[in-house]
Design a protein around this nucleic acid. Structure first.
Lengths: 373, 373
DNA sequence: GCGGCTTCAGAAATCGTTTCCTAGCCTTCG
DNA sequence: CGAAGGCTAGGAAACGATTTCTGAAGCCGC
């Protein structure tokens, strides 16, 4: 009698074909169908074939919600970024998503727009959707929420440094190396007055980049006057405003290092408006190496932070937290390299060795660092 | 006896607090808790207060999967875009997401990278996740999949024109108006040789923009030679290649209209490499008005297609399809306006009225069209 | 004072899976 | 030849909600 109710050639809700339909069609139990679908080996080859055939015929698609409900895992990953409209992040999202999908996960994306409140509400929303883990590629998460999640052993991945708690995985970006290369590159060109436009200093990674700059300058014996350290906000508008501030100074720096490429684009725009020439009047260096950078006028010298690396590390770190038998389950740190890419927005400062500039500008770039083809 | 098993002050799985925990804490049944959470009015105010208190105390969060399983609705929307790394789409995604979240929906994002195969697999993945509806902001979906979805009365929203089937909602962008404004703007400046770099012509919206261009030119009595119609692919690389093709021609056009802003950025870069000056040597006009456009060197004259409008229409159209009592449930078309925004990448062609160029370039812009502040 | 109607809360069925447990069958070994 | 043990497949119990149905009050009117 139960068979007569379950065996539904006429489905109760239109378009919904479920595991029971497959089972009755193949003449097996739903448990067997489940085993076949999940590739559990303990099922007879002949039966499995019949099940696959039935699945094909009725057009069965497993219901993810039901599956998640009982298994307790949703195979969804959360990815929280600072600002989806900053081109660096779509590039990261794309890489992340491709990798995640290839490994059978879906991705839920959230953008905080640099508002700490949003980070929390995003995480809550994602938890409600039962994501298996969250990668936080921004800042602003409150300690006590993290604390709770850690207690639940919920897989979390942070960039740079999360709160100092166990069971959190961290992607450590080697800002110092890239920034050091950039500073040395500028110094080698003859720059002595290098300004720095930072990101919003609430952001850990922005502070890290700024500190790396100061350290590199100090290593060269250079003291940076405070008026050459400007806080931006990682947007073009911020870069523009910061550069306008710098051009208003009595002593204009001969080079500007920016905390990200969007800032650098804003700087280029500000210099365009004040008719300063780049790189003749002033050199500009970015950070991130977004795809756009090489299309700027002039193409932007910048520090590359590999999206591919970052995304791959994030996915791996999440899986390490989710799957208890993951080979890297015990690993807590992933290291992401950075590297200077020299293009045409950096050159000898005006007045120094003009002849050399003319002759060597082409050959000079990318000497010890990555060559831009 | 069942009470002793369900009443779990010690939860069976760590961190999972469910409706039963709330019920036993508040001393009510799970049905009542459900009613309270869903704001169903037939529950006593005092009881409701007790339930809310219990919810607060145990930190209850409803399990979305279970809810979706029984209610048949997931409150998730799918959004499929052409290419997430084209800055237009993150802007759209952001607007869409903000609106959706404000209305209680979550968003699943997919990027096809212009591969038709991916559109299909994306839709399938989204269906598997039980999204309530999908907005397809790109092309390449196969008719028979759509046919199946239409039969299931699955809410679908297309841009421009989906397959001609009932029960599909369409966002019609008025490309013709924006393109016409752009062409007339260039013509008014004195341009007679205007080239057009299209998008990939498999894409409906790319064809629509191209046709609008040809029509506008025809209205002015201008015939466009075939070598001035170049097919691009909506990327910077495509724009660059297309422009390189154009600069190789015997007769260089005096203006180039691009099917989107990324193409225009590629064009600017190509012209930079060939040391052509914009707008003195050649005028460049884009389409989309991405945020980046105003920061280009020079700031890009472009046709604005409002993300806000588009996103709002998409969300509204989806909800109209999902919620049977929606006020616009019967509406099948939404109209999206476009409008020229004049900036500094367009000017009089070299040789014509040079004096006027000098004197009027500043005042001229934005005469009959939107003024860029 | 009692019957019927309204209101509100609880019991139980259901959604579509996974997974544990058990029953049968076949093999193998004593 | 019989008992033990290993496979395989099915039955049934979860998973955490919604929702229908049922039943117990309370109130009103006759």
């Amino acid at each position: 009698m139960s068979a007569s109710r379950n065996n539904s050639s006429d489905q109760r809700r239109s378009g919904t074909v479920n595991i029971r339909d497959v089972a009755s069609r193949a003449g097996v139990s739903i448990a067997t169908v489940s085993r076949v679908v999940n590739h559990i080996a303990t099922v007879d080859a002949e039966l499995a074939r019949r099940v696959w055939k039935a699945i094909e015929e009725v057009g069965y698609v497993p219901n993810t919600q039901a599956r998640a409900l009982v298994s307790g895992r949703s195979r969804m990953l959360g990815l929280i970024v600072s600002e989806i409209t900053n081109p660096f992040f779509p590039e990261l999202v794309q890489e992340f998503e491709n990798l995640a999908v290839a490994q059978g996960y879906e991705v839920l994306i959230g953008s905080t727009n640099y508002e700490p409140v949003r980070t929390e509400s995003l995480i809550r929303r994602m938890l409600q959707r039962n994501v298996d883990g969250v990668a936080v590629m921004t800042f602003g998460i409150e300690e006590d929420l993290v604390q709770k999640l850690v207690e639940r052993e919920f897989p979390l991945v942070f960039v740079d440094a999360g709160p100092a708690l166990p069971n959190i995985r961290v992607l450590k970006v080697n800002y110092a190396e890239g920034i050091r290369q950039a500073v040395q590159h500028l110094a080698a060109l003859g720059h002595r007055h290098i300004a720095f436009i930072s990101g919003p200093l609430r952001l850990r990674s922005a502070v890290a980049r700024r500190d790396a700059f100061l350290k590199s300058m100090a290593e060269l014996g250079q003291i940076v006057p405070p008026e050459h350290m400007v806080e931006g906000n990682h947007t073009m508008e911020g870069g523009m405003a910061a550069m306008e501030h710098l051009t208003g100074l009595a002593e204009l720096p001969t080079a500007v290092l920016c905390s990200n490429d969007m800032t650098a684009i804003g700087v280029l725009h500000a210099l365009y408006r004040t008719t300063h020439k780049v790189p003749e009047d002033i050199s500009v260096v970015g950070f991130d190496d977004i795809h756009l950078a090489q299309f700027m006028l002039p193409p932007l010298t910048t520090v590359q932070m590999s999206c591919k690396h970052l995304a791959a590390a994030a996915v791996e770190a999440l899986r390490a937290g989710i799957e208890s038998d993951h080979p890297k389950a015990a690993q807590t740190e992933w290291h992401i390299p950075t590297q200077l890419v020299v293009r045409q927005s950096s050159a000898f400062p005006r007045g120094t060795l003009p002849a050399l500039v003319e002759r060597n500008a082409g050959k000079r770039k990318g000497a010890a660092t990555k060559r831009n083809k």
